[in-house]
C-alpha cells in the first residue's frame, strides 16, 4: 500500500488548537496542570499526555509583525531511527507507513526519544511507557480521518497518499512564494523523508524546526555495540527503572527530561 500522511499547511492555520483537543479526546489523555507564562503556547512542549501541540512564534522584522503557528507531532519518518534503536522491537511501520508503538512490548526505556531526530517521543510516568502520535492508525484502518485532521476547520491539515500530500505542498509553496519568498516544503527529504509534510511560509528555524534534523551521533554506536546485548542486560538488572535511569544519563545528554505533567482531571 502507498504511504499515507498529512499536510500541515501553516499558511492556513489559525492556531485554534482544535487539533490538540481532538487528539487528547480521541486518545483519552488527561489534561495537565499548566500556567500562562507570557505565551499563547501554554503547553510548552510535547508530553506523555500531549501527543500533539501547536507552537507559537512571534517575529518583528522591518516593522512587519508575523505570528507563526506550527502543529507538532511524530513526523512518521520513512526510515525511523526510533524503530532501529528500540531494544524491544516495540516500534514498527504499518503498511501505510505510519510509525507505531506496541504498548505491550514498550518498557519505557526512552531510547526512541534519544534517537528521534525531531525529539518527539515522551515518557508517561503513569503508564511507564514512551508515547507519541500513531497517525490514528486505528481510525484510518476504518476509513476515518485522523482525529486532528478531522477537527481542523480551515483545511490546514489534509490527509492522503504521501505523493499527493507532497504534490499539494509544492503547489501551495509556489503560490506563497510571491508574498513569502522563503516559503518551503518541509518533510520531503528531512531525516530521510517523513509522511507528515509541512508548508512553511518561512525558514524552518522560525517554526522551531531544525533545518537539517539529524539522528544523534552516539545512537549508531549504541545500536551496533551495546544493543545486541540488551536482552541480557534486562535479564541481569530486571529493573526497568534502573535502565531508564542509565539510558537517560547515557543518551539524554543535551536533551530535556521528558515532561511529566500532573494530571488535573480524573
Amino acid at each position: 500500500m502507498a504511504n499515507k500522511g498529512f499536510l500541515v499547511d501553516t499558511s492556513k492555520c489559525i492556531g485554534c488548537r482544535g487539533c490538540v483537543v481532538a487528539c487528547k479526546q480521541w486518545n483519552q489523555l488527561p489534561a495537565e496542570y499548566s500556567e500562562f507564562k507570557g505565551s499563547y503556547q501554554t503547553i510548552p512542549d510535547l508530553t506523555g499526555n500531549n501527543y500533539t501541540i501547536v507552537t507559537f512564534h512571534e517575529y518583528e522584522e522591518n516593522g512587519r509583525v508575523e505570528w507563526y503557528f506550527a502543529k507538532r507531532q511524530c513526523m512518521h519518518c520513512l526510515d525511523p531511527a526510533c524503530m532501529k534503536v528500540c531494544p524491544q522491537k516495540a516500534i514498527s511501520i504499518t503498511d501505510t507507513g505510519a510509525v507505531v508503538r506496541d504498548n505491550d512490548k514498550c518498557v519505557g526505556c526512552k531510547y526512541c526519544a534519544a534517537a528521534c531526530p525531531f525529539q518527539i517521543p515522551r515518557y508517561n510516568k503513569e503508564t511507564d511507557k514512551e508515547t507519541k502520535c500513531s497517525l490514528c492508525t486505528e481510525r484510518t484502518a476504518e476509513g476515518v480521518l485522523p482525529a486532528c485532521v478531522k477537527a481542523c476547520i480551515t483545511g490546514a491539515l489534509w490527509y492522503g497518499d504521501r505523493d499527493e500530500v507532497l504534490g499539494r505542498a509544492k503547489e501551495r509553496v509556489s503560490e506563497l512564494k510571491g508574498e513569502y519568498p522563503n516559503a518551503n516544503v518541509y518533510g520531503e527529504t528531512e531525516a530521510g523523508g517523513t509522511n507528515i509534510i509541512y508548508v512553511l511560509a518561512d525558514e524552518p528555524e522560525k517554526y522551531g524546526f531544525e533545518k537539517e534534523p539529524k539522528i544523534p551521533g552516539p545512537i549508531n554506536a549504541w545500536q551496533d555495540v551495546i544493543k545486541p546485548y540488551f536482552p541480557w542486560l534486562i535479564a541481569l538488572t530486571g529493573a526497568v527503572s534502573v535502565i531508564s535511569f542509565f539510558s537517560t544519563r547515557l543518551l539524554g545528554a543535551g536533551k530535556e527530561e521528558a515532561h511529566e505533567g500532573e494530571s488535573i482531571d480524573g
Binding site: 490538540v20 483537543v21 488527561p30 489534561a31 499548566s34 500562562f36 501554554t42 503547553i43 488535573i264
Partner: peptide, 23 residues
C-alpha cells in the same frame, strides 16, 4: 478561542483549562 463567554462551561472543561489556564 479556547474559552466561551463567561467561561463556566469551558473553565470547567479540563482540556480547555489546560490550554488557557489563567487571565
Amino acid at each position: 478561542v479556547e474559552h466561551w463567554q463567561a467561561g463556566i462551561m469551558t473553565r470547567n472543561t479540563p482540556w480547555l483549562a489546560e490550554l488557557m489556564p489563567n487571565v
